[in-house]
Structure formats: structure tokens, C-alpha cells
């Protein structure tokens, strides 16, 4: 995924764990920034969904961390890094429907096991690196398509 495209924008957003009231704010802000930078609407939409799911995972399962937004001419990258417990089985976590969410989170409509699948469906490349007891880093790459259509946004 190495590209010569120059970096246009870099921004870091802190995420506070278990702060459900403020959860979702980063994705809204990321979309605002991307729109201001003139990023194509479909890439803005996909980045917003990827960011929301990543942010929610950090809020629900970790003490917090940060989200780094990188905007290039040809792509948007979102890097989520947390100081959580780590994911014991990443392949299992990628399975649709798999979730370790507690009941209180499920009652609020989280924890349906679609978070990581949604991140995959809305990005062109998704890397998950997790170390037990240390945390998780997820890097999502969303390509900017100048001739974009509405297809392929959500349905995997």
C-alpha cells in the first residue's frame, strides 16, 4: 500500500474508553474534516462508518486510545490504537456475529458482531495487529475514487 501520493492532512483524535455519551463524536468530526478537504462523498461516507465502528470498539472494550486520520490525494487512512486487553483470536473477531459485548452494551444496540465486518466492507484494506495485554492497532485504508459510483459502499 506504499504510494507516492503526498500527505494532505494529519489529525489525531483522543478516544476515552467507556464514555458512551461522547462516543461517535470522532466519526462525525472526521467526516466534517474530510468534507472540508474536498474528499469525494463516497469516501467520506465509508470513512465515517469505518471510524464509527472502530471508535465504538475502543469505547466499549478498552480504556481508550487514539484515532489518527491521514488524508492523501489517493486515499484516506484511519489508524486506531488502543491500550486495551488485546484480541485473543483476530480471525474469530472478524467473523460476522461474533461478539464479546456485555449485556448492557447489547441492550443499547451494540455488540451484534458486525463491527469489524462493517470496517472491512467499507475499507479497501484492513490490518489488525493485536498483542494480549498491550493493545490493538487497526489500520484501515479507504481509496478515493474520482469516478466513484454508489456501489460497494456497505453490502459485502
Amino acid at each position: 500500500m506504499i504510494s507516492p501520493a503526498p500527505l494532505r492532512h494529519r489529525e489525531i483524535f483522543p478516544v476515552v474508553g467507556l464514555d458512551l455519551e461522547r462516543a461517535g463524536l470522532v466519526s462525525t468530526e472526521v467526516q466534517r474534516v474530510l468534507r472540508r478537504l474536498g474528499v469525494e462523498p463516497e469516501a467520506v461516507r465509508r470513512a465515517g462508518i469505518v471510524c464509527f465502528e472502530g471508535e465504538m470498539n475502543m469505547v466499549l472494550y478498552t480504556p481508550g486510545g487514539r484515532i489518527i486520520l491521514l488524508v492523501y490525494d489517493d486515499r484516506v487512512e484511519l489508524i486506531f490504537s488502543d491500550r486495551g486487553a488485546g484480541i485473543p483470536d483476530v480471525e474469530l473477531a472478524r467473523q460476522p456475529g461474533y461478539s464479546t459485548a456485555p449485556d448492557w452494551a447489547r441492550e443499547l444496540g451494540f455488540g451484534s458482531g458486525m463491527g469489524i465486518p462493517n470496517m472491512e466492507a467499507n475499507s479497501d484494506h484492513l490490518e489488525i495487529r493485536s498483542r494480549l495485554g498491550e493493545g490493538t492497532v487497526i489500520r484501515a485504508v479507504i481509496l478515493r475514487r474520482k469516478d466513484e459510483t454508489r456501489s460497494g459502499s456497505t453490502h459485502s
Binding site: 458512551l20 455519551e21 462516543a23 461517535g24 463524536l25 466519526s27 462525525t28 467526516q31 461516507r45 465515517g48 462508518i49 464509527f52 465504538m56 443499547l108 444496540g109
Partner: peptide
Amino acid sequence: THQRHLNVVAVGKLRE
């Protein structure tokens, strides 16, 4: 929906 907490607004906006 039956959900009525703050995140619902974010989801509604994201999904337009």
C-alpha cells in the same frame, strides 16, 4: 427504532 441514546443520532447521520 427503540434505541434512543446519543449514538443513534451519529448512526442516523452517518447513514444519511
